[in-house]
Nucleic acid binder design. Structure first.
Lengths: 201, 201
DNA sequence: GGTGCCTCATGACAGGTGTCACACGGAAGT
DNA sequence: ACTTCCGTGTGACACCTGTCATGAGGCACC
C-alpha cells in the first residue's frame, strides 16, 4: 500500500483527486491539506510514502514545502503536480529535491502511474516541460534584480519598490534597467511578465 | 439520471471531477472537452441536462459558451465552476444565462449537490462570492477604457496600444488616465491589475 | 433643444522612468 | 594580488506617462 499525502488549495480539485486515487487498489490517501505550511506537520503525523504538492498554495509554496520534506523525511518522495508549466518552476523544484513534476493537463490516469514510478525511485517529469526547461535555460537575473521585479509586479512605482526594499530609488532604477535589458523587453511591466512566465520570480 | 457535460481544460482535474461524479448514483457523465469552442458541438451530440463549465479555457471562455448553450438548448442548465472568484465574472456569467456559479475551493461533495439543485431550477451561487459581487458593483469603465487596459495589460507602451487599437497616442493616454482615476490607482499597471481582479476586463 | 455622456483628438506641462557613466566595497575565483 | 562579478549609490539626460484644458461629433434621455 502506497501512503499518499495531498496538498492542494482548491478543495474541489483536492476532493476529486482523492476520489480518483482512492479507486486505485494500491494507493491510500493518508492526509490532505490546503496550506503549504501544514505539509511538514501533516507528514509527521501521517508518514506518507509520497507527497503530492501543488505549487500555488496559501502559506508558502509547494517548492519550499518540498525542500522541508526532503530534509525531515528523506524517504518520502515528492511529486509536484501543478497548473503552470513554468520552466523555472521545474528547475527549482528538482533542485529542492522533488522526485517528479507533473502538469494538471496530463491525463488523470497518469497520476497513479507517476506515483508508482516515483516509489520505485524513478524521476517522473512531464516530457514537454522538460524540453521547455532545457531551451529556456537558467535565469539570467541576479538576486536583487529578481527582488525588484517581484516587488514591482503589482504595479508599484519605483519609489514604492525602493521603500519596500530599503534601497535608494536610483539603485532600483538601475536594477530594473538591467533586468529589462537582460530580458530584452521595453519596460518593467513586460519584464515582470516575461520573468514570471519563465518561472524566474 | 442526470446527464452531465464537463468542459475543463486541465485533463487531470477533468478526470478527477469525472471520477468524483461517477460515484454518484444519479449522475452520468455524457461528454467532456477541454475547449470552449467544442462545448456546443458536444452538447448537440450528447444532450446533457447540466453543463459544467470552467471559465479559463482555450478556444474562448466558459461564459461565452454558456450564452451559446442557453440559445441552442434552453433546457440545459449551465453551472460555471471556476478557480477565481472575480465578482465581474459572476455578473457576466449570470447575465449570459448561467444557472449557477461555484468556486473550486468549495468542498467537492457540494458539486453533486449543486448539480441536483440546478436541475430543480434553483440558482446556486457561492455565498462569499455573491457578497463580493454586490459590494463591488458594476464596472465603472467605459468600453474604450476597458479596451486600452486590455491592450496594455501585458506591458505594452502607449504607442503600442495606440497602434493596435488604431487610435492616436493622446487618446490612449486620456483613456488610461480616466481609467486610472476611476479605479483610484496610480498607474496603468495597477489599473489593469485591479480591473482584472474585479473581472472587469 | 438642452444636458450629459462617450469617443476621438490636440497641445502643454510636470513628474516618473529607463539609460548611461561612474564610483566604492565586498566576495569569489585565478 | 589581480580580476571579475554583484550590490549599492549618485548625477545627468532623454523620453515616456499621467494630467489637464479644450474642442468636435454622436447618441440618448428628459
Amino acid at each position: 500500500m502506497i501512503r499518499v499525502l495531498i496538498a492542494e488549495d482548491q478543495a474541489m480539485v483536492r476532493g476529486a483527486l482523492k476520489a480518483l486515487l482512492a479507486m486505485e487498489d494500491d494507493i491510500q490517501i493518508v492526509g490532505e491539506t490546503d496550506r503549504a505550511d501544514r505539509v511538514l506537520e501533516l507528514a509527521k503525523q501521517t508518514r506518507p510514502d509520497v507527497a503530492l504538492l501543488d505549487i500555488e498554495m496559501p502559506g508558502g509554496d509547494g517548492i519550499g514545502a518540498a525542500g522541508e520534506l526532503r530534509n525531515e523525511f528523506p524517504s518520502c518522495k515528492v511529486l509536484i503536480v501543478t497548473t503552470f508549466g513554468r520552466p523555472g518552476f521545474l528547475r527549482r523544484a528538482m533542485e529542492s529535491g522533488a522526485a517528479g513534476f507533473m502538469l494538471k493537463d496530463s491525463p488523470a490516469h497518469e497520476l497513479a502511474l507517476a506515483i508508482r514510478r516515483t516509489i520505485k525511485g524513478d524521476r517522473v517529469i512531464d516530457p514537454g516541460l522538460a524540453a521547455a526547461a532545457l531551451s529556456a535555460g537558467v535565469s539570467p537575473l541576479s538576486d536583487r534584480e529578481r527582488d525588484v521585479l517581484n516587488a514591482g509586479k503589482g504595479g508599484a512605482s519605483i519609489a514604492d519598490i525602493a521603500k519596500s526594499l530599503f534601497l535608494s530609488e536610483g539603485t532600483v532604477r538601475n536594477y530594473l534597467s538591467s533586468a529589462i535589458q537582460k530580458l530584452e523587453v521595453g519596460n518593467r511591466t513586460e519584464a515582470a511578465r516575461v520573468a514570471e512566465e519563465q518561472g524566474w520570480l
